[in-house]
């Protein structure tokens, strides 16, 4: 098994399509903790199907054979589909907000840096600039490095999200939405603000 010999990539990108139900995040996080898989980042959001969420999990490759991660994820009843995008031609994106110290003297210089990274200025004050940057981890690390000399007052970063390039998808099969909707209705699993059917 190539993935269990410990020579795999440093990081794995795993995408899991999960039921949008309370407790799912705890199940996934609990699984990773218990099996000793280190999560570098985790991002959760809705998918194109109501009732399904998409988790993008960046796993420390040294901590676990990714095959075990995938299989253990599949054992969770609420996990519908798992894909390892590590070796796929995939787009990965993070978003970061940086509040950087600046003054009238160096503001222009900082704006030049932001331009190079195609970061947007989303807020400005007399002695700071807030930049928003989108990109893969390396790009964001690059901007952070360039901003450090000015003084980073605050940094907020999302986890990575990922998607394969081209027409191929990693989501549930395209013929499934109807079936899924039907199951949803029959199970009374409309997610409601109060008293949802929950399974945690």
């Amino acid at each position: 098994m190539s993935s269990s010999n410990g020579t795999g990539p440093a990081q794995h990108t795993v995408v899991a399509i999960v039921e949008d139900k309370p407790g799912v995040l705890q199940r996934v996080a609990g699984l990773f903790r218990r099996r000793g898989f280190n999560i570098e980042s985790l991002a959760v959001g809705p998918t194109e199907f109501e009732g399904l969420s998409r988790m993008t999990i960046i796993v420390d490759g040294a901590s676990a054979p990714v095959e075990q991660v995938e299989k253990q994820l599949y054992k969770l009843i609420d996990v519908v589909k798992v894909n390892d995008l590590t070796h796929e031609d995939a787009i990965t994106r993070e978003l970061a907000l940086l509040k950087v110290r600046c003054n009238n003297v160096n503001r222009h210089e900082l704006l030049d840096v932001a331009n190079v990274f195609r970061a947007d200025v989303v807020d400005m004050a007399t002695n700071s600039l807030t930049l928003q940057v989108v990109g893969d981890g390396d790009k964001i690390n690059g901007l952070i490095q360039m901003c450090e000399p000015y003084g980073i007052r605050e940094l907020s970063r999302t986890g990575s999200i990922a998607m394969t390039r081209g027409a191929k998808t990693t989501t549930v099969h395209e013929s499934e939405p109807e079936a899924i909707a039907r199951v949803h209705q029959s199970q009374g699993r409309r997610v409601e603000a109060d008293l949802p059917f929950s399974s945690d």
Binding site: G30, R34, I77, G188, S199
Partner: peptide, 24 residues
């Protein structure tokens, strides 16, 4: 208790409505 049994069960449920008991 569902938080406690989560890693030692194949699956668990917290049923928040009587109408959802049969499916659970």
């Amino acid at each position: 208790i569902t938080g406690i049994t989560q890693p030692i069960t194949k699956h668990n449920y917290l049923v928040m409505r009587a109408e959802n008991i049969p499916m659970a």
